[in-house]
Design a binder for these strands. Structure first.
Lengths: 124, 124
DNA sequence: CGACGATAAGTTGCTTAACTACCTATTGCG
DNA sequence: CGCAATAGGTAGTTAAGCAACTTATCGTCG
């Protein structure tokens, strides 16, 4: 598949483990206040101590998807000649974030319990 | 797609949230002792209090994948006329389970921290 | 006897979504 | 000018869980 195992591996090893959990993270970043896409990406990287260093090909389409779903809204502006699209949560986005937080907690608790190595219920 | 929105929703709502975390769950089920596919599916359902009621189209291909990767081995048998394929962890499977447990813990801790609503590092 | 449900093990094709690899554009540094 | 950082994007690939279906055995209900 890939050429070199040795050397720098810039992308996050978690990779597809994120599937289904990216949206809630993006919403959580935006809960603190409006941010443009690149700032969202950076906040996620710094807030995760470098573990979630997502490529732009992941972040921008995800933000676009969230906007299309009405969970965030974006507005264009121009700062220092660079165009920016600043996103903020909609009321629906706030609601979604709240329920998704609950879902994550339940999901994580279930998996953690299952991994704890307790004796499994015998079947038959 | 399906007939009724109201009422019963048999499939798990988590859906693709499981992506990337199914393997470690299957390995964890098999850590307690050998089990055949259907028993793995049932143990997962009961152990998760019904939350992970995975369809066979998810479980069997996943077990096949794990076997191909050398993490589990399966042997055919016949009980009450019904054929069974009983799986058990290989040494490599035990190793993988150990590291994957660590990965899950780190992954879950990172997401939980990010969702905790702490002030995000300001960018610019 | 036939229908049906539980057990048991698959297979096929669909879909979602994150990823890789690209591209455009501006500012500032050397 | 070349290059890095900032900023925003797109096209195509791939992984993997899911829905729906198939085969088969056994027990039970009518």
């Amino acid at each position: 598949m890939n050429g070199g195992e040795s050397g720098s591996r810039p992308s996050n090893a978690d990779a597809q483990a994120l599937k289904g959990h990216l949206d809630v993270l993006l919403l959580a970043v935006l809960e603190d206040g409006p941010r443009h896409g690149y700032a969202v990406k950076e906040a996620l990287r710094e807030g995760s101590d470098g573990r979630f260093d997502l490529p732009t090909g992941t972040v921008y389409p995800a933000l676009y998807r969230l906007e299309r779903e009405g969970l965030i809204t974006g507005t264009w502006s121009r700062v220092d000649g660079r165009r920016r699209r600043t996103y903020q949560l909609t009321p629906a986005g706030h609601l979604r974030l709240r329920t998704d937080r609950g879902h994550w907690r339940e999901f994580a608790a279930t998996i953690s319990t299952l991994l704890e190595g307790k004796p499994w219920p015998a079947t038959g």
